[in-house]
Amino acid sequence: MILVVFRSRFSKQVDDAYGTTEEHLAKKVREMAGDDLVHLKNYVAEDGERLALVWWRNPETLEKWRNDPEHQDAQRLGRDKWYEFFELSVAEVVRTSSSVGPEAYPAP
């Protein structure tokens, strides 16, 4: 399994187009990845820092998403306009322990 950790903070230039784009791409990635997208969670800290955690079943599907033209356009807008800062980490999950089975997690 692959875990993508995306930390960010909005710039003063963020606009309504961000929310529209985020909603569209979240729907698109779920449709494109199907069962290869395990979980997608977003959090916002009190200080405004944002955190997205995305679990992928395999690197091939993640690579397909990374190369998606609409996703790449949104990344450019993020770098140029929407984010004051961002940090992306991609990690291979070596082990997971849980008190519940995978069926307990809602679909992403």
Rank of each mutant, 00 (worst) to 15 (best):
M1S: 12
A52W: 06
A33R: 00
F86H: 15
D73C: 02
T20E: 15
V93N: 02
L40E: 07
G101C: 07
D16L: 14
P108C: 09
S97G: 12
A104G: 01
L25P: 08
L77P: 01
E103G: 12
K64P: 12
T61V: 13
A91H: 14
R95E: 14
Q72K: 15
V38P: 06
W56A: 07
A74M: 01
R95A: 15
T61D: 04
E103Q: 13
K28G: 00
V44N: 03
D73A: 13
E63C: 01
H71N: 13
A17W: 05
A17V: 07
V4T: 01
P69H: 04
G19R: 07
S99E: 09
D80T: 09
T96V: 09
D68H: 11
E31Q: 15
W82Y: 11
L51V: 06
G101K: 01
E84Q: 12
A107K: 13
Q75L: 06
E60K: 13
F86A: 07
V44S: 07
E92K: 14
D47W: 11
E103N: 10
K27P: 01
E49R: 14
L88Q: 04
D47N: 14
V29L: 04
T20V: 15
D68I: 11
D15K: 08
D15A: 03
V44C: 10
D16I: 13
A33M: 05
Y105P: 02
S97Q: 15
V4E: 08
E63P: 01
D15N: 11
D47R: 10
L37C: 02
A26Q: 12
N42S: 11
G101Y: 00
K28P: 01
F85L: 04
M1G: 12
H71A: 06
S98D: 04
G78D: 06
Y83P: 01
V54W: 00
R50K: 04
K81T: 02
D35T: 09
E23W: 14
N42F: 14
E60M: 10
V100G: 03
